[in-house]
Nucleic acid binder design. Structure first.
Length: 402
DNA sequence: CGGCTTTGACCGGCGC
DNA sequence: GCGCCGGTCAAAGCCG
């Protein structure tokens, strides 16, 4: 960043020396920047890993404590958060650009179907490319210790669901492939054309474990066919491939944030998630569009009935649609960092604080731009960032917002 | 042959 | 009570 390109115009013999000198300085500057970026990235990764570990430990601990009557999201819901509301919640996450969906397996959706009382989402998510195959064979982590008795019939589920709070996570991602690879194996069990939306909605069931209650719905966004909307419901009762843990953390964190909120919210996005009873909605919108963004993280709340298909496709955003307050969307696009926070709830602030922290750490504008550009252009980075943000938020929330 | 997709039928919730 | 609609089931077909 400190690019002091001084190319002196001194002719003659010293000219070459000057150029050499300036080039050296330039390289030095680039190196410094590179180093800073590396450090920052390492820091972020480090924090992420540490938090992820803590998160899992806490979750497990809490889970074991309360295991009796309810099932907690493995990924770390705090008891208090969880107990706050048992209504159905809907969390929506949108991952920007393409997440490669190499196989046909898509995203994960977790739906706590009927487990007697739980609601949690243990999602596995695809972190892009790599995961070759998720299959049951390569579980990376166990998100949920809980063991739910199996499956009930779908009808039973519905019945249970109506009376029990259930969290749902909606992931919006720009993806050209039919589905996103989220680290789990899915089996399509149905398809329906929702009224008002020409795009058929596909129903998938997690097949990693025969008893896994997780289901997901995949549908194209009518407004933008390149956007894939995946809604997960339930919690995996089996280990999830490492590749899917990032998303799992992200979605669960989002859900936890949502759960910790006051209440349930209205149905979300019409084009996406199916209409469901009043749920709270949190949207992480990573359908980044670098060019369109003004640059930076932006938090903004939107009207309650955020059902419109016009979700801010800005980068990374969580948009919790809260019943009472309405919905909010936190977006990341490329540029500087900016926050528009009308009225943020406690959990919203978790994200805000983190984002602020983030922005502070990268005080230099150039660096910021570089980062944001990287974020908006690299889906995998988006996923990681999303996971970090959500994880941190969840961690804070779980610890009583320390 | 096993697993997955497709697709029509069925069921229950909800609004009128 | 009726019809609409979302979600699921399950038979049939496809594919590796």
């Amino acid at each position: 960043m400190d690019e002091n390109y001084k190319c002196s115009k001194v002719p003659t013999t010293t000219k070459a020396d000057n150029e050499l000198e300036s080039t050296k300085q330039e390289m030095t500057g680039v190196r410094e920047e590179n180093t800073r970026l590396k450090n920052l990235l390492q820091q972020v990764e480090k924090d992420y890993k540490a938090l992820q570990v803590q998160f899992m430990d806490m979750s497990r601990k809490e889970y074991s404590d309360k295991n009796r009557s309810s099932i907690f999201p493995v990924n770390g819901w705090s008891n208090s958060d969880y107990s706050n509301d048992r209504d159905q919640d809907l969390v929506s996450l949108s991952l920007g650009t393409n997440i490669h969906a190499k196989t046909k397996k898509e995203n994960v959706l977790a739906k706590p179907t009927c487990e007697r009382d739980s609601t949690e989402l243990g999602l596995g998510c695809s972190s892009e490319s790599s995961k070759t195959d998720d299959g049951p064979t390569s579980p990376g982590k166990i998100l949920g210790p809980e063991i739910r008795e199996v499956p009930k019939t779908s009808r039973d589920d519905e019945i249970c669901q109506t009376s029990v709070k259930r969290a749902r996570v909606c992931v919006r991602a720009r993806c050209e492939t039919p589905t996103m690879n989220d680290g789990c194996q899915w089996r399509k069990y149905g398809q329906k054309t929702a009224k008002g939306n020409p795009c058929p909605r596909a129903y998938y069931r997690c097949t990693v474990s025969p008893s896994c209650p997780v289901r997901k719905q995949v549908q194209r966004c009518m407004a933008d066919m390149s956007i894939l909307i995946t809604t997960y419901e339930g919690t995996h009762d089996h280990p999830i491939p490492i590749s899917g843990t990032a998303m799992a953390s992200t979605t669960s964190a989002a859900a936890s944030m949502l759960l910790s909120g006051p209440t349930a919210s209205p149905p979300l996005n019409p084009y996406g998630p199916p209409p469901v009873p009043p749920y709270s909605t949190v949207t992480l919108d990573l359908t980044t569009e670098p060019s369109a963004t003004r640059g930076g993280f932006s938090l903004h709340s939107s009207p309650p009935s955020q059902q419109n298909p016009t979700f801010p496709a800005t980068g990374l955003s969580f948009s919790p649609v809260e019943p009472n307050t309405g919905s909010s969307v936190w977006g990341v696009s490329g540029g500087g960092f900016s926050f528009d926070l009308p009225e943020k709830s406690a959990h919203e602030q978790k994200y805000v604080s983190y984002l602020e922290k983030l922005s502070q750490s990268s005080s230099q504008q150039a660096l910021t731009e570089t980062l944001t550009r990287a974020i908006s252009s690299d889906p995998s980075f988006q996923s990681v960032l999303a996971a970090v943000v959500s994880t941190m938020a969840a961690a804070k929330g779980g610890e009583g917002g320390k």
